[in-house]
Design a protein around this nucleic acid. Structure first.
Lengths: 144, 144
DNA sequence: TTGATGTCGATGCAATTGCATTTATATTGC
DNA sequence: GCAATATAAATGCAATTGCATCGACATCAA
């Protein structure tokens, strides 16, 4: 039985939390410094861009982003309000809607990526070599 | 030049973010289910408990927790309000104060640890063996 | 000294998040 | 068919967070 974690698990978790928070805070700060929207906007825009023409239902986006339903609802509202995302009535389920990214949304995502990607390269790519990065990703995926 | 990150860095970051958010959300949910305070309270209490009699200055706690100054100020206020932490005037710097954990604070932290630790053992310890955990921690520390 | 600048911590206000509930539509069991 | 239950998304309200700034003291330079 795994009732109390051993030191190795605790150390790994603490290192995980610290690495994540540090990197995330860096990315957010760089975006803000360039007057760009926060990371959550990027994630939503990217999921929608990947989804293409078909778009995504809010609940699908919610799962992809690990977002709470009410938070997603409001995030989408903000994105729609400034024209980065479009909401259409869903033909198959009249409770729902279909979200898709607009041209302006794609442009904003691309602008964000220049900043986010550069910070990512520095903060993550610059500190581990390719083999280490792959190993890290594999280990982390076992936690999912 | 690291201007655009390569795939390995992006995959590692995405896996890192997903693993962190999943684990963190699990821990928070378990604590709430037991009517216990959130993770941030745990972190603060633990840092103060480790610091012992001498206590910590708010700005030290801020650095240890990677918290914003104003958020820490308010967190400490809440902790003090319910008697888990004590604030004393700092003898060496009259702008500042010294924080220390109370007996009740220690008891609360211990109660939280039973829940948090168990979830940690399940979510982290249960999915990787000891060697993998050590390797993961080492890789993550290179990102710090 | 003393005036300029820096650091510690708090706080007013706006934006965001969490929680509980609501509205609207789908689905399921009888 | 229809009542009971489930799911999609929104929302009122309280709590928290982010931002800018403040007040108090410390430090430094002349």
């Amino acid at each position: 039985m795994t009732s109390t974690p051993d030191d190795a698990a605790v150390s790994a978790w603490l290192a995980l939390a610290r690495a994540y928070r540090l990197a995330f805070a860096t990315f957010e700060a760089r975006l803000k410094a360039e007057n760009l929207p926060p990371m959550a906007w990027y994630d939503a825009l990217w999921e929608l861009e990947k989804a293409g023409e078909a778009g995504l239902r809010p609940f699908e986006l919610e799962q992809a982003m690990l977002f709470e339903q009410y938070n997603l609802s409001r995030l989408v509202e903000r994105l729609a309000r400034v024209g980065l995302v479009e909401r259409c009535a869903c033909p198959e389920d009249r409770r729902g809607q279909v979200l898709s990214i607009t041209a302006e949304g794609k442009a904003t995502r691309a602008r964000m990526w220049r900043v986010y990607g550069e910070a990512l390269a520095e903060t993550i790519g610059g500190r581990l070599d390719d083999g280490e990065l792959r190993l890290l990703a594999d280990l982390l995926r076992k936690l999912g």
